[in-house]
Structure formats: structure tokens, C-alpha cells
């Protein structure tokens, strides 16, 4: 008698599809949210590693002036307003870059590697790029300066757009699940109209009636969400293993996996509470009207 269901909600034929839809929505929503986190993590990592908005490239020349060329270029760069720091990329680092692109078997000594200078900017002051370019050409016509800021902004925008879209889709999935629960509740209210009328006639408040629906919705959503979230976890785990086996560049740090586990744990609880709340709102709205 203590665990009462004054409304026979368990026998609702029309609402039987709801847990399956919720499980599917939680599965998709959780994966989509993890993808959002993955994009946020990747973009933060990438942006942190970006310290080189400008780079200066000069070929290794076999002339007498070639030896003094890097230091002259560095002098000019360090004297240019707006430039915070300029440093030659060590040949070892250049070699490892080539190895990562062309493979470990390549003998980089066979190539005449150019000298690259990484330039970091002082954000407080603007660099006169045309004046800098002219100054460098004045030192040597073979010196070439590249402004990376254009494509960096484009890639950054792409990251942010992807994050926004992924998050937007997560929200859409969440609303889809809540809308399904709301529609099912409204149908349920119609089906149990007579029972609700009797409850109301014996003095049940709207809140008492709504509680029956919300407790039922909470239990249903929690079980369905745990199933959906578990499958999402397995999919995510499988993807990580697959990417690692395929030796594809998994741009995030391996800690991302452990940092993301809370999503799979919290998703069912969040969904259960969200559904309970939306069902309560729907029932109270109908009962008041």
C-alpha cells in the first residue's frame, strides 16, 4: 500500500515506445555531447600550441653572406615594433617535422632544409607587415615572410562552428526526447481522464496527480537513459580503440578519455530529472486548464 500508483500508468500502451525513444535519444545525445567536448578540448589544445602567427623562411645559400643572414634577419625582427620574440627553429625539430610528414625512413640530410624563424607577436602593438616584408627583402630577396594568422583564424572559426553545431544538435536531441515525453504524457492524461476526475473529486490536488506522472516518468527515463548511456559509452570506447589501432592522429590527449567519463554517468540522472520536470509542467498545465 505504501508504493501506490493511483493511476495505472504502467499499463499505457501508447506510452510503451517512450523508454525506447529516450534510450535512443540519450545514446545519440551523449555521443554528440562527447563530440562537442572533444572539439572544445582539441581546439583549446591546438590554440595553446599556436605561438607562431608569423614565420620567416630563408633558403640555405652557399654564399659568404649566407652565414650572417639569420642573425641579420633576427636583428630586424627583434627591432620591429609589435614583435615579441623571434627564434630560429632548431634543425633537429625541422628534421622531426619532415619525419612526421614523410616517414621515419627518409634521410632528411639529403634535402636542403630551409632555415625557419618562428615569430611571436606582442598583442598590444600592431606589426606593419608590409614594412617588415620590405625590410626583409632589403636584407635578401630570398627571405620570405608568411603571415599564418589568416588560416589560423579560419581553422579556429571552423572549430568554433563545429562546437556550436554539435552543441546545438545535442540540445535538439534533448528537446526531442522531452517533447516525446510531453506528448506521451498528454495522451496519457486523455486515457486516464476518468481516473484523474475521480482522484480530483476525492480531493487530490493537481500536484498530487502530477506527482504520480512525474515519479513514473523519472523511473522510466532513468532506466532508459542508463541503457542509452551505456551503449554510448561502449561506442565511444570502441571508437577510441579503433582510432588508436588505426594509428590515426587522435588529436586530444589520452586523458580526454578519463575526463569524459562523467558525461556517461551524469547523462541518465540529468535526463531523468529533465523528463520528470517537463512531465510535471505538462500535467500541471493540462490540469489547470
Amino acid at each position: 500500500m505504501s508504493h501506490h500508483h493511483d493511476l495505472p500508468l504502467n499499463k499505457d500502451i501508447t506510452a510503451r515506445f517512450v523508454p525506447k525513444i529516450v534510450a535512443l535519444m540519450v545514446y545519440l545525445g551523449t555521443l554528440c555531447f562527447v563530440f562537442t567536448l572533444f572539439m572544445i578540448h582539441s581546439s583549446a589544445l591546438w590554440e595553446n600550441q599556436l605561438t607562431t602567427p608569423l614565420s620567416v623562411e630563408m633558403p640555405t645559400l652557399k654564399t659568404t653572406e649566407a652565414n650572417s643572414l639569420p642573425s641579420r634577419v633576427l636583428d630586424l625582427l627583434n627591432q620591429t615594433p609589435g614583435i615579441q620574440h623571434a627564434a630560429v627553429v632548431p634543425q633537429k625539430e625541422m628534421a622531426s617535422l619532415f619525419h612526421s610528414l614523410l616517414g621515419e625512413d627518409i634521410d632528411v640530410d639529403l634535402f636542403s632544409l630551409p632555415i625557419i624563424i618562428d615569430v611571436s607577436l606582442n598583442n598590444q602593438e600592431k606589426v606593419n607587415f608590409q614594412r617588415l616584408e620590405a625590410g626583409l627583402k632589403n636584407i635578401s630577396p630570398h627571405v620570405h615572410v608568411t603571415d599564418h594568422r589568416g588560416w589560423q583564424i579560419q581553422v579556429s572559426n571552423l572549430f568554433h562552428t563545429s562546437i556550436f553545431i554539435a552543441f546545438f544538435i545535442t540540445i535538439l536531441i534533448l528537446f526531442g526526447a522531452l517533447a516525446t515525453a510531453t506528448f506521451a504524457t498528454k495522451t496519457s492524461l486523455l486515457i486516464h481522464g476518468q481516473v484523474i476526475e475521480i482522484l480530483s473529486l476525492v480531493g487530490a490536488t493537481n500536484s498530487y496527480i502530477a506527482k504520480q506522472f512525474q515519479v513514473h516518468a523519472f523511473k522510466q527515463a532513468l532506466i532508459a537513459s542508463i541503457i542509452g548511456s551505456s551503449f554510448a559509452f561502449l561506442t565511444f570506447f570502441g571508437l577510441v580503440i579503433l582510432l588508436e589501432k588505426a594509428e590515426l592522429p587522435f588529436v586530444v590527449h589520452s586523458s580526454f578519455f578519463s575526463q569524459t567519463l562523467w558525461v556517461f554517468g551524469l547523462a541518465p540522472v540529468f535526463m531523468a530529472f529533465a523528463m520528470m520536470l517537463s512531465v510535471r509542467i505538462a500535467v500541471m498545465k493540462v490540469l489547470r486548464s
Partner: peptide, 24 residues
């Protein structure tokens, strides 16, 4: 106007239950 899915005893106890009276 009895609730067919509830036992007789639960039907009778309904007004007390909606008032929050203890189940026992």
C-alpha cells in the same frame, strides 16, 4: 466511480491517501 485497477481497500483509502495520511 471506483478505480478498477485498485483493490477495494485501496479504493476506500483513496481520500485519506490524497490527504497525505500514513499508508498503514
Amino acid at each position: 466511480k471506483l478505480l478498477e485497477h485498485l483493490k477495494v481497500v485501496d479504493n476506500v483509502a483513496l481520500p485519506l491517501r490524497v490527504r497525505g495520511v500514513d499508508a498503514k
